[in-house]
């Protein structure tokens, strides 16, 4: 079995004009950092991988996850977790309900509840299950978003400027937590950022995207 996330000859076009090209394999537990000026299409690359590319773009090439071609699978069947720069916790659900939303179905009510509590305890948020997400601090929200994603058992992890909204010391803290967890679970990570510190902390390969179409 070929573990990892492989982007094979990816090319994304807008109105027939190539926007970005990537051809790279990310092994399990490794981080690929994609850098580049804003507007170059970094988020578009992630949208193609999650299967949510807007119809104004066309994507070509294959995405393989753990040896399986997921290019044409619907977004909910891809098993790819994503973190954005905003926590995007569902504001109408409690912290616990946010986590349970992403957990695979099955298990009794009590067992699921215990799983939620455990997961919160792992990131130092014991007893937060019934809280309103809006009452959490920025760092707490970021941790809940991470835990929510991990509880859905993803096979790869995408980070879309995930740390850029956090204060400097908090950023390092959350970043270390994410990379450490990804390493423990042997998840391939694709990080999009414009912050060189993020790239250095990740320690993996770095691709510098440039605009293919001028102007």
């Amino acid at each position: 079995m070929n573990k990892g996330l492989i982007l094979r000859n990816l090319c994304i076009l807008r109105a027939g004009i190539p926007l970005i090209e990537v051809d790279h394999a990310i092994a399990a537990g490794e981080v690929l950092t994609v850098m580049g000026p804003s507007g170059v299409g970094k988020s578009t690359l992630l949208a193609y991988i999650t299967g949510t590319l807007a119809p104004t773009f066309t994507g070509m090439g294959q995405v393989l996850l753990d040896g399986v071609d997921i290019t044409t699978k619907p977004p909910h069947a891809r098993r790819i977790g994503i973190l954005f720069q905003d926590d995007l916790l569902f504001p109408h659900m409690s912290v616990g309900a946010n986590l349970a939303f992403g957990m695979p179905p099955g298990g009794g009510k009590a067992a699921r509840r215990a799983q939620v509590e455990d997961a919160l305890g792992d990131v130092g948020l014991t007893g937060f299950a019934d809280r309103d997400p809006a009452t959490l601090s920025g760092g707490q929200k970021a941790r809940v978003a991470l835990v929510r994603m991990l509880l859905s058992n993803p096979c790869a992890l995408l980070l879309d400027e995930a740390f850029s909204r956090l204060d400097a010391d908090l950023r390092a803290q959350v970043r270390d937590l994410v990379f450490q967890t990804a390493k423990e679970r042997a998840l391939p990570v694709l990080m999009v950022t414009h912050d060189i510190e993020d790239a250095q902390a990740a320690g993996g390969a770095v691709i510098e995207l440039e605009s293919l179409s001028k102007g």
Partner: peptide
């Protein structure tokens, strides 16, 4: 913000689950 839908489907939610459990209540 359709990124909520992206996050929800990345968590394994089918389109109708996103509609009923995320978008409508919000």
């Amino acid at each position: 913000d359709t990124r909520y839908a992206t996050v929800a489907s990345a968590l394994g939610a089918r389109p109708w689950k996103v509609f009923w459990q995320v978008r409508l209540p919000m």
